[in-house]
């Protein structure tokens, strides 16, 4: 029971986090009526996950061997692109919001952003969706045994746990000032996306597309990837107990590059360049 709880919680955690953030985001920019974009994105992803689960179970041959891997890697990098774009947008617009706590972002801007937010919801749910669907489906076939019901109970509790997490993020996000919210989610998304980059690079190394190497360091004695805290941190900030050099490089390059996009004012404050500031001003 405990085991199935952990599996589902781990799979659902990232999706719940992203859903909580985007719902709260819509509230903060004054468009709660647009929740449906997120809901539709999430629901479509659920449908796609079920389709993929069925597909994997039915298909065979080279397509079944490579298809899921290619899709998994593709979803990771699409998610990175979407989150980067979103963070960049928040970085550009944070400055506009000065002094107005509940400013309604203008209609035209917001409309453009809605499909984007829906897509973030889609990738967030779809990323671990097919796996979770297959896992739950497997549990449903085990119900003749008494332990099967316990396992299903644990899995349901895991889903509920993930949903509560998402709800807490949503409620917490709603209570922040719009500045606080933009800043907090930018930081969160920056490291989450950095972790996704590391995951993507790792998967490509596992598939032999990128050269693999020895781990740069080993902190598994301190915090193991297999542990629940380790795996939640892996999803949240990209923690790895034994990262490869390429994963670390990908993570760092991403966090630095995207960080300058997400936080254009940091550049200005350091006086390194007023380029970003000028760009932001012209662009708004």
């Amino acid at each position: 029971m405990g085991a199935t709880f952990v599996v589902v919680l781990r799979e659902g955690f990232e999706a719940a986090l992203l859903l909580g953030i985007v719902y709260a985001y819509l509230t903060k920019i004054g468009h709660p009526e647009s929740y449906r974009y997120v809901t539709i994105g999430g629901a479509l992803a659920l449908g796609a996950s079920i389709l993929m689960g069925v597909g994997v179970s039915v298909a065979s041959g080279p397509l079944a061997d490579f298809g899921p891997d290619v899709i998994a890697v593709g979803v990771i990098f699409v998610a990175v692109a979407l989150l980067t774009w979103h963070g960049w947008w928040m970085g550009r617009h944070a400055r506009e919001l000065r002094g107005e706590v509940q400013r309604r972002i203008d209609e035209a801007h917001a409309q453009q952003r809605l499909w984007m937010v829906g897509l973030i919801a889609f990738t967030g749910v779809f990323r671990e969706g097919a796996e979770t669907v297959l896992f739950l489906w497997g549990l449903l076939t085990q119900l003749e045994e008494a332990s099967g019901w316990l396992a299903l109970l644990g899995a349901t509790a895991g889903l509920v746990g993930a949903a509560i997490l998402g709800w807490v993020v949503f409620q917490g996000g709603r209570r922040l000032s719009i500045h606080g919210f933009f800043a907090a989610t930018s930081v969160l998304l920056l490291f989450l996306a950095g972790g996704l980059v590391a995951s993507g690079v790792g998967r490509l190394q596992g598939l032999g597309v990128l050269p693999a190497g020895d781990p740069l360091w080993d902190t598994s004695w301190l915090l193991n990837d297999h542990s629940i805290v380790g795996s939640l941190l892996a999803g949240l900030v990209g923690y790895r107990a034994r990262p490869s050099a390429l994963e670390v490089a990908g993570y760092l390059v991403y966090v630095v590059a995207a960080g300058t996009l997400f936080f254009p004012t940091l550049l200005r404050r350091r006086g390194a360049s007023d380029l970003a500031e000028r760009a932001a001003n012209r662009h708004v």
């Binding site: 076939t141 190394q205 693999a212 107990a241």
Partner: peptide, 11 residues
């Protein structure tokens, strides 16, 4: 985790 492999194998 070491090999960066994740692969679901249906029943």
């Amino acid at each position: 985790k070491e090999l960066r492999i994740e692969k679901v194998i249906p029943a």
